[in-house]
Design a protein around this nucleic acid. Structure first.
Lengths: 204, 204
DNA sequence: TTAAATTTAGAACAAATGTACTAATTATTT
DNA sequence: AAATAATTAGTACATTTGTTCTAAATTTAA
């Protein structure tokens, strides 16, 4: 693995375990056993390391969403596996979510990118919900506005479940993912038709 | 107003507008026109300023929750006014929510306090939901576990709506509160009985 | 094999930060 | 009025940080 890639890997580890504000370029270099000068040869500015990691998270998540969007019909087990895959990705890059506002402030490009992304995602999610309505999974009596609010809820919980975990239960790895994917599943419950509810109960 | 109080007021202003990581004790002193030495006479450590502000937020929120808990019967308009009051308080101390994980890392007492608080609040909220079930506002067919997940959802959205706003819409003041209180109202919608739904529709 | 390019180490710099220290000023008490 | 306590300004210090610079070492190309 070349140095640039090793820097990214080490940075991710350190940021995830110690937070984005306590870790400096010197820490990363020290942990790798290279000089600060060398690190700054590969990344002139420390923020570029963070930006690169954010871009990778963003690209990886794009792939996940695209795979769901491509489906003709969406059902609950698919949603559940989508949720788990997303949470796993989030956990991998958890420092970004734990310090989202900080990072957005430090690196305006991240903020801009995320704001644009959200608008796109909102439409994508609403279209998935329409599919769920059409296939009798979602209740037909929910006003557009309620579904829109549900999308925002999902974004907020999706972006900040890691922060909630950090401040309360502090679950690690697969335990965290299991716990919060249950919460996600429960979030969907009141939106389901009685038939879908029965199915959901059985699958848990 | 004595100096100590002025420090807290100025710190809150600066933290809210510039973030907790960019503002230092020197910035606060400069903005007030006092010396750094004077500031550190009143607060030996900068973190004490943040801790004091957190304690005030916590105490203020206690009052709000207690006033709801004291009610014999809870209905939707009361919930709505509870939501608005809470969001207003959150907005006042928004820097805390925008940097919750940071602050928890910097000041372990905050993290401890919040973790304990959450456990208490979970019970309080569940008991409010039981009241809502009893008075025919909440659907009777919701499993305990779904209600528990709803409480967590409310906590996450309640703690991070400001971060979401910061990263996307960037609404200011009453506009932010209006928008996110609508989202909170919509969150409740699928949990309501048909009768309560009708009432809710009329009130908007 | 020699020349050129890339990569690396290590030192050095300037700015910022938290906070301690000292002395002066102001307020309070006796 | 004198003595004591509280408050304030201003300076100073040690540490940290991001980054730059220089020169050495290593790799690649010719």
């Amino acid at each position: 693995m070349d140095t640039k890639e090793r820097i990214l890997k080490t940075a991710l580890e350190l940021y995830n375990s110690q937070g984005v504000n306590t870790i400096t370029s010197r820490h990363i270099a020290a942990k790798m056993g290279i000089s600060p000068g060398n690190l700054h040869y590969h990344f002139k500015h420390t923020d570029e390391i963070i930006k690169t990691l954010y871009d990778r998270l963003s690209a990886d998540f794009d792939v996940i969403v695209a795979s769901v969007e491509a489906l003709e019909e969406v059902d609950l087990p698919m949603i559940r596996s989508f949720v788990i895959t997303s949470l796993e990705l989030g956990y991998k890059y958890r420092f970004i979510f734990l310090h989202f506002v900080e990072i957005g402030l430090r690196i305006p490009a991240v903020k801009k990118d995320y704001a644009a992304l959200t608008q796109r995602r909102e439409k994508e999610f609403l279209s998935i919900f329409e599919k769920l309505k059409a296939s009798g999974v979602f209740r037909p009596d929910l006003p557009e506005e309620v579904l829109k609010a549900f999308v925002t809820q999902i974004f907020i919980v999706g972006d900040f479940w890691l922060s909630n975990n950090e401040l309360t239960l502090k679950l690690k790895g697969s335990k965290a993912i299991a716990h919060y994917s249950d919460i996600f599943s429960s979030m969907f419950y009141p939106y389901l038709t009685p038939a879908a509810m029965q199915l959901a109960k059985g699958n848990e």
